[in-house]
Amino acid sequence: MGTLDTTQTPGTATGVRTPGRASIPDRHLRTDRWWLAPAVTVAVLTAFVIYSTWRAFANSDYYAAPYVSPFYSPCLATNCVPMPAGADVQVFGPWWGISPALLVLIFPLGFRLTCYYYRKAYYRGFWAAPPACAVAEPHPKYSGETRFPLILQNIHRYFFYFAVIFAVILSYDAALGFRNAAGQWGHMGLGTLVLLGNIALIWLYTLSCHSCRHVVGGRLKNFSRHPVRYRMWTWVGKLNERHMALAWASLVSVALADFYVYLVASGTFHDPHLF
């Protein structure tokens, strides 16, 4: 038996070093690789932000008939490339001179930014509040989501409503993938599978949302009086258990779908026709 450290005298520090608490100088005593998850989060989200910023501002190579990049759909400006039967509604006139992606990306961005899972991911990864469980955060003050701007996280449900609209539009885009480049139905290419995989994951992520779970039935006090909503709530609850996995999977799939369209539209890759 031996004393490892000289006896600590409580000082005037705060947090885990607050006077009266067990005087342990270390921020944490964890011996596992607690830093790995936030580090991976930061790396993947940063990579996605860099990639999507480049693609959103690029304003090129986002349509290769019949495929449209999910970053550019719906296309709401007159400077969109023509998309036969596609979701290009020219709401914004010629005065809109920059990328049309910037008109729509705010909605999926807002949905993910206010998402309950992503909040955990970036609060931990980027803001270190906390970096991991029982690892002291570096901030002297903390007010959480009680004040502006973070109190705006409470509007997540509105972004959810927009996310449903976007999922419908992307489903339409995926359906258009069953045409060939000339617009004839009954065809399918590798791009169709890419868009179908993406929209499946987008739907699963959207429907697994905590706000969705609340809207379909979570807000009720008595499920027995609303059997249909109760059933829907249990279904969404099952999806909701996988919300984290679906958040990552759909983030990767949307980037991959866009990249596939970029490769085809730029002529780097020829879309293999299945039939």
Partner: peptide, 29 residues
């Protein structure tokens, strides 16, 4: 409003109660 749903409560719960997903987030909603 102080809760920023970083889920440490759920991680440490020895009864495996989904505190964040089933209590705190529904309460926030």
């Amino acid at each position: 409003g102080y809760c920023n749903i970083t889920k440490c409560c759920t991680e440490v719960c020895p009864e495996h109660i989904k505190i964040t997903d089933n209590a705190l987030i529904p309460l926030k909603e």
